[in-house]
Design a protein around this nucleic acid. Structure first.
Lengths: 156, 156
DNA sequence: AGTAGATAGTTGCGCCCGCAACTGTCAATG
DNA sequence: CATTGACAGTTGCGGGCGCAACTATCTACT
């Protein structure tokens, strides 16, 4: 990488920039599904998916596993609640925590969304051969580990 | 990827999410340099780097090559101008365009920043072997092509 | 039991950014 | 020449998000 002299930075070859640009483009591409078809913002989409995976959990858990700021989670949850896609119930053992769960409508949306999203993921990666894809995802796994992104980490 | 049943989406294994999270973490990591040490926002950093590479160019060109919205470029340029890191001169052949260039102070900042940024890039990628790194960057190149990110594209 | 510190979640504030609309300039066409 | 449409760049507006501060609750320690 960066074959030029060490005193010149070519943005197009600078890995952090390329990664940012790529992730943004992929995000925009995927948002056609959750945004245009289902009217969800990315933070709401993440909350929905997390709840679809872990039937009941707290906002804190969602913040950890999605690495979103807790205020962002709070707002996404509030929005989903307004739209009756999600319901809160106060936890009896700890009144600070709210137990979050998808409503029937939320589950229906989840079930409709997931196959489309997985299909889009495949389509995005379809420009890579199996070997290339494995190498790509393997490298990402290593980078995640190096940056301590695996498992539930909080940023703020 | 996604070895589970096709009706469940595990966010931690969903490539678009992983890519987004990784790019964000890399961005935060890199921002220690341009933000904390030099007081630049990411958009300003990109403008600075682009001008360091192409001595004189227009805002439009910066928007294309960085894939930033033209208003974002406009504000970053205005901020850099206020800080005397950049100077505008009106183009004689086309009065609509502004010819942008770094000032001496801007060039000094650029020269101080670039080696640190390149070093940080190396450090970020140091968890990969040469083979892995080549495979990783190669895959990114293919994905960029598939998403038409290479070369100057405008999004808006 | 009572107090202090930690934790879950919400909200006011300010900043950044995209959208749409605007100004000013250029090129093409009559 | 005048007019129309395209283009470079700026700005008002609104929305989303992070930070800090807040409330409410739990836990630990005396």
């Amino acid at each position: 990488m960066q074959l030029s002299r060490p005193d010149t930075l070519v943005l197009e070859r600078f890995a952090p920039f390329r990664l940012n640009r790529l992730a943004d483009a992929v995000s925009v591409n995927l948002s056609e599904i959750y945004r245009e078809r289902f009217g969800l913002e990315i933070s709401e989409w993440r909350v929905l998916v997390t709840l679809g995976q872990h039937a009941e959990c707290t906002a804190q858990h969602i913040a950890c596993s999605t690495r979103m700021h807790k205020t962002r989670v709070s707002r996404a949850v509030a929005s989903l609640e307004r739209r009756k896609l999600l319901a809160k119930t106060s936890n009896t053992s700890d009144a600070r925590e709210m137990c979050l769960a998808l409503t029937k409508a939320g589950q229906r949306m989840y079930s409709a969304l997931v196959p489309l999203a997985l299909q889009r993921e495949l389509s995005l990666l379809s420009c890579l051969s199996d070997t290339e894809r494995r190498a790509f995802l393997g490298a990402i796994t290593k980078l995640e580990a190096a940056l301590q992104l695996s498992g539930g980490n909080v940023r703020a």
